[in-house]
Computed example of a mutant assay.
Amino acid sequence: MRTSTRIAGVLSGLALVLGGAAFTAPAAHADVSACINQVERELQGGEAPEAVRKACSVGYSGEHEECVSGLTKSGVTNGTAVSACKVSIQ
């Protein structure tokens, strides 16, 4: 096999792999963002602190109770915390 053909094949495969990663990565971010946005709506335009971002990330990983606990410790009402954590795993 010629070197140029081999290089073209490797580059094509690499492009496919990286393209697939680009399509899957935003979906994970969107779920965490939805959780954060829900909390920010309660804060009426205020930006969510880092503790909220961490709690939403924990919620995305499937730890619903830990997510709710983290959000309520950050001053979010229980109702918003429960619904925001549900959104993070959908």
Rank of each mutant, 00 (worst) to 15 (best):
P26E: 05
A22W: 12
C56A: 04
G62S: 05
E63Q: 15
A25L: 13
A21V: 11
E63G: 00
S83T: 15
A81T: 07
G46D: 13
Q38N: 14
E50A: 14
C35R: 06
A81G: 12
Y60T: 07
E40K: 12
S12Y: 03
G75L: 04
G13M: 04
L14H: 00
T24S: 08
V68F: 09
G9R: 05
A30Y: 01
G62D: 04
R6E: 02
A34H: 02
F23A: 10
S88M: 05
V17W: 04
H29T: 08
V52C: 11
E63L: 10
T5R: 08
T72C: 05
V82S: 08
N78V: 06
A8K: 05
V82Y: 01
I7L: 12
A34K: 08
R2Y: 01
A28F: 07
R41S: 15
G45Y: 08
E63F: 11
R41H: 11
R53G: 15
A51E: 15
E47F: 01
T77D: 15
T80C: 02
G79W: 00
G20S: 14
A51S: 14
L18H: 02
G79C: 07
I89W: 02
A84F: 10
G19Y: 05
L11S: 05
G59N: 05
E47N: 12
I89A: 09
G13R: 02
I89P: 00
A55F: 01
S74Q: 12
V52G: 10
A55E: 08
L71E: 11
T72A: 06
A28V: 06
G59E: 05
A51V: 13
P49C: 07
F23W: 12
S61M: 09
Q90V: 11
E47A: 15
L43C: 09
K54H: 09
A30L: 09
A48G: 11
V58Y: 02
